[in-house]
Design a protein around this nucleic acid. Structure first.
Lengths: 224, 224
DNA sequence: GTATGTGAATAGATTCACAGCT
DNA sequence: AGCTGTGAATCTATTCACATAC
């Protein structure tokens, strides 16, 4: 089954998804001069349960001191390490429409270690334009862009109709990690990691809860 | 805390999150003239397991026909109904920077029943500008904007430092559902529904997997 | 006394496997 | 035969509660 026992511990997905949130909180704490933090404080900062924080951190090499808490600096180091080893991963954005343009100038990417290193688009009217100091290149040159700038992450910001095509291009160019903003399900080989960010879907989920609340509110009658 | 037994069935969160994806697939099928669809086909379209689809649909009033499948039209109706009753929910966007501007012109929102009905910003330099035919109004007038256009959803697209303030404004204006794009944890009262879309976090999660894959790849050759 | 680390308990989601209908 | 509907089994995640350490 497994090729022997992993020495490196496996971190559960749910934990991985919370680590960036902890990291943000910890960086803020460090900036405000805090040296240690308790699981309760960190939980509050991240909006989760304290036991959850402790269990999450137990998956890292991070160790706290009983009666005291965790060392902020150390924790920042451990989490950064787990999340990509501190090496920046340049990203290439496919599809430079409204969203692609906004993403290419999004500060959070650079801050998080994901500098935007390439922009490509299929539309000749967009190719050649400069966005935030970078030129938009034709999608045919994607493989070159990837090679030249060492991109390891691709962002799909095309219309849904072109999303699968964009994914295929990225896969062909050897990109192992893809973030898809197009509201479409795309298929990639097993060894490619794909995540979906679906803006309209998020709103629809909110819509469900809103609808439900109104429905049950009507049932329950007036609430004080 | 539950006021007795709900007549209306409760739909699990994980199911709710998949319904919009099914809906998209079904609309495409309807456009291409398909009248019925099997759970296997729909699963393929949505990128999930077929048993999962069947269980999900069993939470709705949707019923399939054994040996045949589900009626596409009917299913579209049932899912739309569950997700907000078919009523459009106008949204107001707080923070009209790069991201806010892109979101205000995002087609997917209108298509999904979430027309952008209001734009507000705290920066006087931005207030008064026209984005996609709508004027940006000062954040102080948020409550008026909400009342005038009947917004029920707020989108936070401010810098993280202003995110909590934006949330407070939205809550004060009576908005029950908030989608936060700022990379910051914001706190809202229990009766307000808050969802987080964190772009940098998504990349960091991809980064973790990438890092891990490389690490285990290296280990596979020479483990000590 | 305070706060971590973790086994056990609980809750939630996915997948399997098959009975039952068309 | 083909496909739905669903109990049971499995897997994953969260929360509790307390022994352990400072």
């Amino acid at each position: 089954m497994n090729g022997g026992s992993d020495r490196r511990e496996v971190i559960p997905e749910a934990t991985v998804a919370r680590l960036p949130v902890y990291l943000r909180g910890l960086v803020e704490l460090a900036e405000s001069g805090m040296a240690t933090v308790s699981s309760v404080e960190l939980a509050d900062l991240a909006g989760v349960n304290a036991a959850n924080v402790r269990k999450d951190l137990s998956y890292l090499h991070a160790h706290g001191t009983r009666g005291v808490g965790y060392q902020v600096d150390h924790l920042i180091g451990e989490i950064s390490l787990a999340l990509g080893g501190g090496e920046p991963s340049p990203v290439v954005i496919v599809g430079i429409g409204n969203l692609g343009r906004a993403l290419s100038q999004y500060d959070g990417f650079v801050a998080g270690g994901f500098p935007v290193a390439g922009l490509v688009d299929a539309d000749p009217a967009v190719v050649g334009r400069y966005i935030g100091g970078r030129v938009v290149r034709p999608v045919e040159e994607l493989a070159d862009v990837v090679t030249e700038s060492g991109c390891t992450v691709g962002i799909i910001a095309t219309p849904s109709a072109s999303a699968q095509e964009a994914a295929d291009h990225l896969v062909a160019a050897g990109i192992p990690s893809i973030l898809n903003f197009a509201p479409a399900v795309v298929h990639v080989p097993e060894d490619v990691d794909l995540r979906q960010v679906d803006l309209a879907t998020e709103l629809q989920i909110l819509g469900y809860h809103q609808h439900r609340r109104m429905a049950s509110g009507a049932n329950a009658g007036a609430v004080g």
